[in-house]
Amino acid sequence: MKILVTGSAGFIGHHLAAALLARGDEVVGLDNLNDYYDVDLKRARLARLAASPGYSHVHADLADRAAVEALFAGHRPQRVVHLAAQAGVRYAAGNPHVYAQSNVVGMLHVLEGCRHHGVEHLVFASSSSVYGANRRMPFTEGQGTEHPLTMYAATKKANEMMAHAYAHLYGFPCTGLRFFTVYGPWGRPDMALFLFTRAILAGEPLRVFNHGRHRRSFTYVDDIVDGVVRVLDNPPAPDPDWSADAPDPAVSGVAPYRIFNIGNEQPVELLRYIEVLEQCLGRKAVLELLPLQPGDVPDTEADVGRLADCLGYRPRVPVEEGVARFVAWYRDYYRL
């Protein structure tokens, strides 16, 4: 298949594109290479993809309507995985307009491209952050998500609603994936594992919020990619068992649309995560324990039973193995 992957210079997008190329798909990548974090790291990811003859790259911003229209008209992808977005929960507090442009306007342009060019299936990135003020664990797709705590979460909830509207109005299948904390080689420098590794090696203190008592469904990137590929290969149809009297928020009786959690069902406390990292680095961390930040949720815990039942998905990589792989990559990439 010819597959468009937006955000192909990003962490998950780069890994997904590599997996699709490895199985013989043709991949068109789109990324604007913004400077939210190290552009050289993004270029290094793209260089790995460019080594494959099946990869072609479009340098464009999703908020540029004409550029996105030209991409769809020129490349005519059969399926689309839309991962590009302005990332970072905390960054949104001071830069809300960036999130609206990238995450909402950009999503609209992708939906319009799919609508006008016969795309067979759109898979798009949502986030566990949509669960917001919900405190019932584990998070399941049938729970309410009407109370986001950050602008980032609000844009991701908007994406889900926009995709359902388009699936209903124009009949093309859409699947949203609520990602839980993803980590691994080639990760984002603004995320905890990257920040903690850099600080420990430099002998600097780690800023640990909520006194390290966060629990997160840390999910290794290969497990995420496995789930995305399974979803991509299985477009949804309207659910004949849907009940108007008791509707399920994650499926639709009137549209080819569904939502899945994708993550690890075994949450790990942040202090344990740091302990594993210390063991892999052979160094102790200096901890600066701080209170919970505004917009942060104390815990996330993924229930991936729906994805397991529908498509056989089960994450396999424990944090001990995943963190060790990250540390090996980090030392090699930075020659430490």
Rank of each mutant, 00 (worst) to 15 (best):
P77Y: 02
S217M: 04
R215H: 14
D299S: 14
A328M: 00
L49T: 12
N261R: 04
R178I: 06
A9Y: 10
R115E: 08
L307P: 05
L281Y: 08
L206P: 15
K156S: 13
G118I: 01
T181S: 08
Y313F: 12
M191F: 10
V105H: 05
F326C: 13
C310W: 00
E26F: 03
K156Q: 13
T197E: 15
L232G: 00
G171L: 01
M107K: 07
G263V: 08
G113W: 05
M1K: 15
K157Q: 03
L62P: 11
A158D: 01
A328W: 00
D309F: 02
L292R: 10
G106D: 13
A50F: 05
Q78S: 11
H59C: 12
A9M: 11
L169V: 15
V27K: 13
V39L: 04
E321F: 00
A93K: 06
E320A: 01
R316F: 10
K157C: 00
L169E: 14
V39T: 15
V208T: 08
R213F: 12
S128K: 03
T181R: 00
L289H: 07
Y166T: 02
V110W: 01
A199R: 10
S252E: 09
V89F: 07
H211L: 06
R79A: 14
A285I: 14
M137P: 07
P148S: 06
H121W: 07
R43N: 08
S129A: 15
L281F: 06
A324N: 04
D31L: 07
L41D: 08
Y330R: 01
I262V: 11
A51E: 12
R48A: 07
G305E: 05
E278M: 11
P77E: 03
G132I: 07
R23E: 13
H109V: 05
N210R: 09
R135F: 09
G282I: 14
N159R: 00
H164F: 09
Q266I: 09
L33D: 02
Y273G: 08
R213S: 14
H97F: 12
L122I: 05
A50G: 12
V98R: 15
S126Y: 05
F209E: 02
Y313P: 01
A246T: 11
M1I: 12
F179Q: 04
A84T: 11
P267S: 11
R306D: 03
A324S: 08
L71G: 11
Q101G: 14
L4P: 12
G227D: 00
L149M: 07
G106Y: 14
H75R: 11
A165L: 15
Y55R: 04
G13K: 13
H59E: 14
L30H: 02
A158Q: 02
G305T: 07
D248G: 03
Q143R: 00
P173N: 10
Q293C: 01
V276D: 01
H214K: 04
A73K: 10
V58F: 03
H15S: 04
M162H: 01
V123N: 09
S217E: 05
R136L: 07
G263H: 06
P256W: 03
Y36H: 11
R306Q: 07
D190W: 00
H147D: 13
P315D: 08
A163D: 15
L62F: 09
